[in-house]
Simulated assay, not measured.
Amino acid sequence: MVKHLDPRVIKTRSSLKTALISLMQQYKIENISVQKITETAHITRGTFYLHYKDKRDFISRAMTEILDDFFDAVIDDGTDSLPEHYAFLNGHAVNVFYLNNAFNYIEKDAQMFNVLLNTQENGLFEHELYARMTGYLNRFYDQMKPAFADIGVPINIQIAFTVSAYVGLIKNWLIEGMIYTPHYMTGSVHKMISLVSAGSPKTVTFTNFFYSDPQLLARQTNNW
């Protein structure tokens, strides 16, 4: 049974997260006090402690909620995007990372993501994003292992390389002021993936985890 939060609770937590992001532009996380957070959010300390045990609990849950919302928007069933319908899946869905959804989502809250990923003093979010992406790629590999291309490189190295490339690309896009549209970024990644794909037409690599809808790309090519 889904538990729906009181709108007032949602508003309070949103205000606190917004205050945290604002403060992270100026201070290291360890130098951000509960008092600074509540004053910036225009919320009393009593209200803060109704929702969170302490600052550590708040920051941990705030980062988790931001990542949950992000991955809810970008991870979806991509079984039909795989090279073929594999019998070993037994009808189970395979989740993939929808590139266009990701770039669009980040663009809509660019300031927050830029602070979280490109503020040198605060590496917590990047670490958590890296860990979450690694988890999804490990699950993708576990599902697709029978069809995975053998390129002679340990899986943990392939995953580390892949995650670093995508997180680094997002960081660079933000640093450069998002001079390219989300659609252009999706198309560019699609082209690069096409060049580095390996194996036979029936095998899978980690490039298959990152999906760009070919119909969407075809419809919007003239808008780049």
Results as ranks from 00 to 15, higher is better:
Val2Trp: 09
Val2Phe: 12
Val2Glu: 14
His4Tyr: 09
His4Cys: 08
Val9Asn: 07
Ile10Ala: 11
Lys11Ala: 15
Thr12Ile: 12
Arg13Ala: 04
Arg13Glu: 13
Arg13Ile: 04
Ser14Cys: 08
Ser15His: 11
Leu16His: 03
Thr18Met: 11
Ala19Lys: 01
Ala19Met: 02
Ile21Lys: 00
Ile21Val: 15
Leu23Pro: 01
Tyr27Pro: 04
Lys28Phe: 08
Lys28Val: 08
Lys36Ala: 15
Ala41Lys: 00
Ile43Leu: 06
Ile43Asp: 03
Gly46Met: 04
Thr47Glu: 06
Thr47Leu: 06
Phe48Asp: 00
Tyr49Arg: 05
Asp57Val: 04
Phe58Lys: 01
Ile59Leu: 06
Ile59Ser: 02
Ser60His: 11
Ser60Lys: 12
Arg61Lys: 14
Ala62Arg: 00
Ala62Thr: 06
Met63Tyr: 14
Thr64Phe: 07
Thr64Trp: 07
Glu65Ala: 12
Ile66Arg: 04
Asp68Ile: 07
Asp72Lys: 10
Val74Leu: 05
Ile75Arg: 08
Ile75Pro: 07
Asp76Tyr: 08
Gly78Lys: 05
Asp80Phe: 10
Asp80Ala: 15
Ser81Asp: 12
Ser81Glu: 11
His85Glu: 15
Tyr86Asn: 01
Phe88Val: 03
Phe88Trp: 05
Asn90Trp: 07
Gly91Thr: 03
Gly91Gln: 03
Gly91Ser: 05
Leu99Ser: 13
Asn100Ser: 11
Asn100Tyr: 14
Asn101Gln: 12
Asn101His: 15
Phe103Pro: 00
Phe103Leu: 05
Phe103Lys: 00
Asn104Gly: 08
Ile106Lys: 02
Ala110His: 13
Met112Pro: 05
Phe113Gly: 02
Gln120Met: 11
Glu121His: 09
Phe125Leu: 01
Glu128Ser: 13
Leu129Gln: 02
Met133Ser: 10
Thr134Gly: 09
Gly135Asp: 02
Tyr141Met: 03
Gln143Leu: 14
Gln143Ser: 11
Met144Lys: 04
Lys145Gln: 15
Lys145Ser: 14
Lys145Asn: 09
Ala149Phe: 14
Ala149Cys: 14
Asp150Met: 03
Asp150Asn: 12
Ile151Tyr: 06
Gly152Leu: 01
Gly152Gln: 05
Val153Ala: 04
Val153Glu: 05
Ile155Gln: 06
Ile157Ala: 11
Ile157Asp: 12
Ile159Gly: 02
Ala160Cys: 06
Phe161Gly: 09
Phe161Ile: 09
Thr162Asn: 07
Tyr166Asn: 13
Lys171Phe: 01
Asn172Asp: 12
Asn172Arg: 12
Asn172Ile: 08
Asn172Phe: 07
Gly177His: 03
Gly177Thr: 03
Met178Lys: 12
Thr181Ile: 02
Pro182Met: 00
His183Lys: 09
Ser188Arg: 10
Lys191Ala: 15
Leu195Lys: 12
Val196Ser: 10
Val196Trp: 02
Ser197Gln: 12
Gly199Val: 04
Gly199Phe: 04
Gly199Ile: 01
Ser200Tyr: 07
Pro201Met: 05
Lys202Asn: 14
Thr203Gly: 06
Thr207Tyr: 07
Phe209Pro: 00
Phe210Cys: 02
Phe210Ser: 02
Ser212Phe: 13
Gln215Glu: 14
Leu217Ser: 14
Leu217Ala: 12
Ala218Phe: 08
Ala218Trp: 07
Arg219Ser: 13
Gln220Glu: 12
Gln220Trp: 09
Thr221Met: 08
Asn222Lys: 11
Asn222Met: 07
Asn222Phe: 10
Asn223Gln: 14
